[in-house]
Simulated assay, not measured.
Amino acid sequence: MEVASSRIRPATRTASKVCAACTSSSTSSSRPFSALNRPPPSYPGHVPLTRVERAGLAVGSGVMSLLNPYRHDLIAALGEATATPYFIYRLRDAMLSDPTGRRILRLRPRISSNTLSVEKLRQLPANTVGRAYVDWLDREGVSPDTRSQVRYIDDEECAYVMQRYRECHDFYHAVTGLPIVREGEVALKAFEFANTLIPMTGLSMLAVATLKPSERSRFWSTYFPWAVRNGVRSREVINVFWEEELERDVGELRAELGIERPPDLREIRQREREERKRQKEMQNQGR
């Protein structure tokens, strides 16, 4: 199997270029691609876009998601519009060059409440990956079913790669401990950009401008250096078969991946709230 692995790596880089070339040549030579004359979808839910439409989707979703970073549908559209033609192929090739990544591509598992038993995860020991994941879901009030379906990536295999990345996002939160607040999301997106190079994750860091001054200062002094350092040096998280790691010690997996846990942002924010409350009470007493 490893012999086959060594042979597939140079071919994958060529494959991505050929795939993109074939797609463009077939649509341009046999059927002119326009808004009024679209090729058939490559997979269920696929919406082929012209270059102008893709650019408009990128700009529009980028501006609106910056104004409202909790619009996950807009962030998803931005990710798909900016991932082609290069970045999603790079991520796909990273999976093809890794034994576990190739197995994920072959089996194409999905992460949802239908494939993961949330109740069974709650019964796992507290230090396991699965328990950390479900505790994080419960604490943040989210579920595995909140990830949008990929629609705007033309290559069917690459569409699955983007879907896999999207559905694994909550595991990245669980392993790092970063909460779903604007400050935590920006820090995690910085880590993901350093690790995956998906443009949307880098563009999402522009939301740092919307943070409070104290949060912005903390991001640049603490969480941005952590994100770059760990995102670059750690294994590519797209190649983790999370479904097979659920019963593993979360600290052990974090160490194997080369990820150091960042300072507990939830605890820091709690201390700040308590300090503000204490100062307010002192001011009221002084009056």
Score class of each variant (00 low, 15 high):
H173E: 06
G251L: 05
M205E: 11
F171G: 03
R278V: 13
M200Q: 09
P109H: 05
R90Q: 10
R92E: 13
T201Y: 14
M162L: 13
R276N: 12
R92L: 13
E236N: 10
S148C: 10
S6L: 11
A194L: 06
D138W: 14
E156I: 12
T50A: 04
S117Q: 12
A77G: 01
K280N: 05
L203W: 02
A55H: 05
A194K: 05
P10Y: 03
H72M: 02
A227P: 02
Y172H: 15
E140G: 00
G130Q: 10
R54L: 04
T82C: 14
V175S: 07
P44W: 14
P262T: 04
V3N: 06
P85A: 02
S16M: 10
N37F: 03
V3Y: 15
R54G: 01
A35L: 06
K212Q: 11
G62N: 03
R108S: 11
V142Q: 00
R108H: 08
S143Y: 03
P179C: 01
W136D: 14
P262K: 02
P99L: 02
E272G: 02
R254F: 13
T201S: 11
L91I: 08
F171K: 03
Q279T: 12
P225F: 10
L206H: 10
G251M: 11
P32Y: 05
A94Y: 09
M282Q: 15
Y172D: 07
L116T: 07
M95V: 03
L116F: 15
Y70D: 15
R273Q: 11
N284M: 13
V3T: 12
V232F: 08
Q149D: 14
M200G: 09
E260V: 14
S217C: 10
R182M: 01
P144Q: 07
L253Y: 07
D73V: 00
G101Y: 05
Y160H: 08
R151W: 05
G231R: 07
V52S: 02
R108E: 12
R103F: 05
G251T: 06
P40Y: 09
Y89H: 14
L178A: 01
E236T: 12
L265Q: 10
N239F: 03
H72A: 08
L253F: 04
L36N: 06
I88E: 03
E183F: 00
A81C: 07
G231C: 07
R7W: 10
R248S: 08
A83S: 15
D73L: 00
S30N: 07
I104Y: 00
A190E: 01
P213Y: 07
R71M: 04
L203M: 10
T176P: 12
W226D: 01
T14S: 06
V175T: 13
V175E: 14
P32I: 08
D138C: 15
F193G: 08
T12C: 05
A194P: 05
P179F: 13
V118K: 13
R233G: 09
I75R: 06
A126K: 10
K120I: 11
G45R: 01
I180S: 09
P48E: 08
L57S: 01
G202W: 05
L246F: 13
M95W: 11
A15L: 15
V186W: 00
L96V: 12
F87I: 03
V63T: 04
P225K: 13
M1L: 02
A255W: 03
C158K: 08
A4T: 06
I268R: 12
K17S: 12
P41I: 10
V18N: 06
E53I: 15
S34W: 03
L188W: 09
E156F: 07
E156N: 13
P213I: 01
